[in-house]
Write a protein that binds this DNA or RNA. Structure first.
Lengths: 205, 205
DNA sequence: AACGGGGGTGAGCAAGCGCTTAGCCGCCTT
DNA sequence: AAGGCGGCTAAGCGCTTGCTCACCCCCGTT
């Protein structure tokens, strides 16, 4: 199935140590993305990481902790991308285009992580869940502020700012669900296409 | 949690008989939408339907058959909505607006069914899976044909027809994920908003 | 009154689950 | 050479899972 020369996951999680813990995270991301959290067994994760089922519990207390680690890091990464775009000077259209482009590119490039981050958060424990929801609220706030800036300056024409914010984020996020690395489009191309589509959504007539 | 006077699921599945089978489907839709297919137990479904765990197997051979029934009916319903819009005369803009409006409204109104239909199809058995994927291909073809019509007639200006088709469908589908019946917006309002956003996406400059 | 059969139940089976425990192995320190 | 320890494993515990089976109840027909 995996014919890529450069596996993005290997470098994406390179700051996790020790080596065995990183292998477990990568294995968990792949398994969760493929089959979902609940359909994935700890034996499967350990097997993919090349160790016995018991070894998992040396590095992570529970299976849920693995999901939390993935979800937390993933949300922080994507939030950082949005913040970077929002603070990057230029017109509101420039900033919105940059935000959509890099957010979409991330969800395509790391679509396995993205799938876990976006579609498995219901499996988190209550306290982890509320923590992650807070990160999501911040992402929404960043995106909304860019759109609000554009409306205020007259660069954008938007009837329902919070509804449009929701739609834009939803559009970008869902890329993680359908993106196929064996498909026709590269993450860059999809980012470009989506930036164009979103800018059309907010453009004055 | 449920304070609605008219439960949409009750009427949505009214053509399923006998009564016990319908109660099981409705219970399964709710449980699958809330927690996902794999996290839902047959005991939970039977309990919600007001019967013993064994009674489920009188009406459905396996838990997967229940999912297949839901997925199949749901896909046929949403495909029918798209076809109706595509065949409903008027300008391409009219047809695209109608398609998006009714497709989105359906995914909001029946967001529990929509969630199962759109996000749990990986849990289907291989042969059921390919059957459902075929239905999805047809939905995509219908949406694409509307957009192609508009491009041909000059009503729409779209660089990448198949990419835009994918984006539009993705945008509509994802409504089922985030829609909250206790939220500010009604299904009709979201349908209206989304129809406007999509028409902006394809509008010539 | 006897019957037949579809819809239902209580109990439980085999398998698989998340997770634990007792102990081993190799390496760094002394 | 001895000891301590982090990383790992084989085995398995207690529990839940999807699903089955023997049996029962109710009701329309004869």
């Amino acid at each position: 199935m995996d014919v890529e020369a450069t596996e993005p996951n290997t470098e994406a999680w390179s700051d996790i140590t020790p080596d065995a813990a990183r292998r477990l995270v990568i294995a968990a991301v792949e398994a969760f993305a493929e089959r979902g959290y609940h359909a994935t067994t700890t034996r499967d994760i350990a097997g993919r990481a090349g160790m016995s089922p018991a070894a998992l519990y040396i590095h992570y207390k529970t299976k849920e902790q693995l999901l939390y680690q993935i979800s937390s890091v993933g949300h922080q990464r994507s939030l950082a991308l949005l913040r970077q775009a929002a603070e990057s000077g230029g017109t509101p259209a420039d900033r919105l285009g940059t935000a959509v482009r890099s957010f979409v590119r991330w969800h395509a490039e790391y679509h396995t992580t993205g799938r876990v981050v976006q579609y498995e958060l219901g499996a988190l424990g209550p306290e982890h869940h509320t923590e992650i929801v807070e990160l999501r609220r911040r992402s929404e706030a960043v995106m909304r502020s860019i759109i609000e800036d554009g409306v205020r300056s007259g660069d954008f024409d938007v009837l329902d700012v919070s509804g449009t914010t929701l739609a834009v984020l939803s559009l970008c996020i869902d890329v993680a669900r359908w993106f196929n690395p064996a498909g026709r489009r590269t993450p860059d191309e999809i980012g470009e296409l989506y930036a164009d589509l979103v800018l059309r959504m907010v453009r004055p007539v």
